[in-house]
Simulated assay, not measured.
Amino acid sequence: MVEELDRAIQATLQSAGAPGVIAGVWIPGQLSYVRAFGVADKSDCDPMRSDLNMRIGSETKTFTVTALLQLVDRGEVGLDDPISRYIPGVPDGDHITLRQLANMRSGLFSYTQDPEWQKQAFLDDPYRQWKPEELLQVAFSHENKFAPGTQFDYSNTNTVLLGLVVEKLTHHSLQRAFKEMITKPSHLPHTFLPKAAELPRPYAHGYTDLTATGAETDATHWNPSWGWAAGAMISNLDDMHAWAENVATGRLLKPETQAERLDALPTGAPGDFYGLGIDINHGWIGHAGSLPGYQSLTIYLPSLKASVVILTNTDIQSGGENPSTLFGRAITQLISPDNVYGAASDQDDVEPAA
């Protein structure tokens, strides 16, 4: 199996045109596989290593919603509370619940879909520091897309709002709330929400084509503050390995709360369902992440107790698909042929970022 995984990942690396990838596959009693292929820095061909820090994009959502669900367990908030109870000024906020924000059924426009915002964030000034309130202002300048609870639509606006709820109820910054509620008790020493563009060494350089001409550029130090509660976190392979089972099995939550989290509804993509800040794709529970220069995937299959973590230093699509999907599919075709992640060419994250 090790040699088969080596070949599959190297073939995907080449076909996707990705600079490098870190891959981990763990099946208790059967397999413990950790490899790094390709380069971490194209300027000097520094090789990719399994201990490098990486930006994990929308995997941040699993942390934000876990913090919210911990507050549910404490009785400090209810999933069916309207967002207007905590954050004023949300369009139709009296009818949009925290549950609908967490399961992407609020109808709120995602600020990352706004063309003018995309121009500002990625073309004009990718080093800009964004405030959550500025992101919401962009989102709320658009009409809601549908009545709450009636459709699925992946919106980063939802998770930014939930991050503000966590801050309001904990009376802490989201950085501190994550540390005290999640990363410290879960022993994730390399996982955190940055305040700006900081990325601790050692790290892999990240490459994107989100430029005016579509030419590739180094986005390593672009400021991910625009992703905030929806997509700005940093981690590494070891931490994400631990988090894969933790979040999928609900170690930080009451069993009944975890059951609500996993009560997922169809997204419209084949075999794909979205719960409360978590995705279930052909049986694999977890989340993918994407932002300029980086993509990630952390998933867990209960039937095998298997974990897969992918960290790659590009978000440039290949054949219309994200690198994280391609790697996830190549690996799961080998280890779980009855549960192939990203089967039928569904994509893990169709927005330009986070």
Rank of each mutant, 00 (worst) to 15 (best):
A269S: 06
E133V: 03
F109Q: 07
T211S: 15
I27T: 03
M104R: 09
T150F: 01
I96H: 04
Q129T: 15
T325D: 10
A196K: 11
N144A: 08
L276V: 00
V90T: 05
H95N: 13
M1P: 04
P189T: 08
L101C: 07
G93L: 03
L162R: 07
A215S: 09
T257E: 10
P292F: 04
D114Y: 01
T60P: 02
T332L: 06
G29L: 06
M233V: 03
L164E: 05
I278W: 00
E134D: 05
R201V: 02
V160D: 05
L5Q: 03
P28A: 08
N53E: 11
N339M: 01
D92N: 06
A219R: 13
N223Q: 08
D239Q: 01
I316A: 14
V340F: 07
D238G: 08
P91K: 04
T97L: 08
T314G: 01
Q258N: 14
H287D: 09
Y294C: 08
Y86S: 08
D349H: 13
D51Q: 12
S50G: 08
T64N: 01
E4L: 10
L193I: 15
S225C: 06
I27V: 14
M48L: 09
M240L: 15
W226C: 06
A102Q: 05
G17N: 07
E133Q: 10
A212K: 11
V65W: 01
S58M: 09
L164S: 03
L291T: 11
K119I: 04
A344S: 12
E351C: 03
L334E: 12
V309R: 08
E198K: 10
A204D: 11
P115C: 08
L188S: 13
Q10E: 15
R201I: 00
T208V: 07
L135Y: 02
D348L: 06
P224R: 14
A330V: 08
A330L: 07
F122W: 15
N103G: 13
L297H: 01
